[in-house]
Design a protein around this nucleic acid. Structure first.
Length: 250
DNA sequence: AGCATTGTTTCACA
DNA sequence: TTGTGAAACAATGC
């Protein structure tokens, strides 16, 4: 599930525990907490408080008090942040903070592709897809020979777009996922950015990328919500991609 | 049984 | 340097 809209909801959850004293840390999942050894994150956080919750694309991090280290979190393919909920039954809470007074925050992740790390490095992460300026978007997205879909999925170009949001955005913008990024003109790039922002804003408001009109129609045998044409399907940028061949001509 | 899956990283290679 | 594709990661669901 998690793309930028889900990550933003997760950030809001993290913000709820800002100011609470951390009295226990479960960092025993060595895969989710890699490369840290068990207890390393605990030692860095025990007794501290989170002071702010931030997000860039799908990457989350929280500042800590007294010059403590940042705590980086990523939801991976199936994670979410559970605040003050009962512990998950099947050890799906991969990383947990417990607070004075009994509350808790868990990275709840059926798979284990989420991450929890101290002092995260975002040097290779592009600007947030919902915040990127028009000029920055033109310069970063509108170059190179990659297919447009692959370009949007590259977190180093712009951060936050996943497979579903990419398809939703391209459908809204009436652009083929196969178009070459560097061949779009300025008007097309500006239009694409507008549609990306709109699709992202709608998804955050409606509760996730799954609420998108196109995402709901997306799938084997799906038809275009606008014109009823059967959707095309192919692997682009390593991900299964759907598009309307009529609305989004190559 | 086999295949697919919303994410990221790494690697071999062109 | 830039780009491509595949594999790996882990686990679940159809």
């Amino acid at each position: 599930m998690p793309e930028l809209p889900e990550a933003e909801r997760a950030r809001q959850q993290i913000a709820r525990v800002v100011g609470r004293e951390i009295v226990a840390v479960d960092d025993s999942d060595t895969y989710v907490c890699r490369p840290h050894a068990p207890g390393e994150i605990a030692q860095a956080l025990l007794g501290r408080r989170l002071t702010a919750a931030h997000r860039r694309g799908k990457f989350l991090w929280a500042e800590t008090d007294d010059g403590g280290p940042d705590l980086g979190l990523h939801l991976g393919m199936a994670g979410r942040i559970a605040v003050d909920e009962d512990p998950a039954p099947n050890r799906w809470d991969r990383f947990v903070l417990e607070f004075a007074g009994g509350g808790r925050m868990a990275l709840r992740d059926k798979r284990r592709l989420g991450r929890a790390v101290i002092e995260p490095d975002f040097s290779h992460v592009g600007p947030d897809a919902a915040e990127v300026s028009r000029d920055m978007f033109r310069a970063r997205v509108g170059r190179g020979s990659l297919a447009l879909k692959a370009k949007l999925l590259d977190q180093g170009v712009i951060a936050g777009v996943g497979n579903l949001l990419a398809d939703e955005t391209l459908w809204r913008a009436r652009l083929s996922p196969r178009r070459i990024a560097g061949e779009l003109d300025q008007d097309e790039l500006d239009h694409l950015r507008r549609q990306l922002r709109a699709a992202t804003r709608d998804a955050i408001r409606e509760g996730g990328v799954h609420t998108g009109r196109f995402v709901q129609a997306r799938g084997r045998g799906g038809t275009c919500p606008r014109c009823g044409t059967g959707l095309d399907r192919a692997t682009i940028g390593g991900r299964t991609t759907y598009w309307c061949p009529r609305c989004q001509p190559s």
